[in-house]
């Protein structure tokens, strides 16, 4: 099997490498990919949509239908992880560990034992080895607000600089995942619950599709944001710019929520009690 695989891979690779001689040279300005539709995007995007970042303009306006279903794909991935992994019935763990905070002693409580209830003195910890995490906790607590601020900047400034809904959403999700890693999964879920994650991911897709449907109601094509001009009280070019922002916010919400949701399900294998 190993030799057969190697033979197939070498055969495939050599056929592909042989045919690269038909490909355009690297960086050739007249390559087929850069000659047909892309000059139109580059020369007309600013006049059509008032968005200097052409990537954002193409992503959310010219190819908005494609991006809407990419967002739906991400939403479906979140749902698929949920249905594959989530264990909803409560499983009593055989052993729970508590740390006595003033002394640092770890209490091991077998099944059926009485659990301490003073949460200011006793803190539940994961059954895997948990080191003291003062430095990690403090660093993350200071860094996470700035990560989230930067994520909001990336989403809102996607018109003028590299960025947009996908990137900003991933950074926002990463900040919550960093919080879950630096403390533990239970604390993260108590701050940002699974229900909120599911709700926000659906809301993101709804904002995107809703913006498209609103254009339809106002008498234009689906996702033709220039129809929003009377609603937003701007001219039709700026309406397309604002429409892109609305859609990017929806994408950012959906991506953030799905990243967090997938992380919760994967790291605890669907039990949502102990994880990374």
């Amino acid at each position: 099997m190993r030799i057969l695989g190697l033979v197939i891979v070498i055969l495939c690779g050599s056929i592909l490498i042989y045919h690269t001689s038909d490909f355009p040279d690297w960086g050739h300005p007249a390559s087929p990919a850069s000659t047909h539709v892309s000059p139109y995007y580059i020369e007309k995007a600013l006049d059509d949509t008032a968005v200097p970042n052409i990537v954002t303009a193409v992503l959310a306006d010219y190819r908005g239908y494609d991006t809407m279903f990419e967002t739906t794909v991400i939403f479906c991935a979140g749902i698929a992880c949920f249905f594959l992994l989530r264990i909803t019935r409560r499983m009593e763990p055989s052993v729970t560990l508590y740390r006595h905070l003033p002394t640092g002693i770890t209490l091991r409580i077998e099944k059926g034992g009485k659990e301490p209830d003073d949460s200011n003195i006793f803190k539940r910890i994961d059954t895997q080895w948990v080191p003291y995490d003062l430095i990690i906790n403090t660093t993350c607590r200071m860094v996470i607000p700035f990560i989230q601020l930067f994520a909001l900047y990336v989403i809102s400034h996607g018109h003028h600089s590299p960025g947009g809904g996908f990137q900003g959403g991933v950074i926002l999700g990463a900040s919550v995942i960093l919080f879950a890693i630096s403390t533990d999964l239970r604390t993260a879920i108590s701050r940002m619950s699974e229900r909120l994650g599911a709700f926000l991911s659906a809301t993101g897709v709804f904002i995107y599709a809703g913006a498209g449907a609103l254009c339809l109601v106002l008498g234009a094509n689906f996702l033709d944001y220039s129809a929003l001009a009377p609603v937003l009280n701007v001219n039709s070019v700026m309406a397309r710019s604002h429409g892109i922002l609305i859609v990017e916010i929806g994408v950012g919400l959906a991506v953030m929520a799905v990243m967090i949701w997938i992380y919760y399900n994967l790291s605890s294998a669907g039990r949502h009690d102990e994880g990374l």
Binding site: Y41, V55, E70, A77, G78, C81
Partner: peptide
């Protein structure tokens, strides 16, 4: 800009497929 647009979405979708 077109390949960048396509790959921007493909990266996020690849993360989602990795999760599944």
């Amino acid at each position: 800009p077109l390949p960048h647009v396509l790959m921007l979405t493909a990266i996020v979708v690849s993360v989602a497929t990795l999760g599944v």
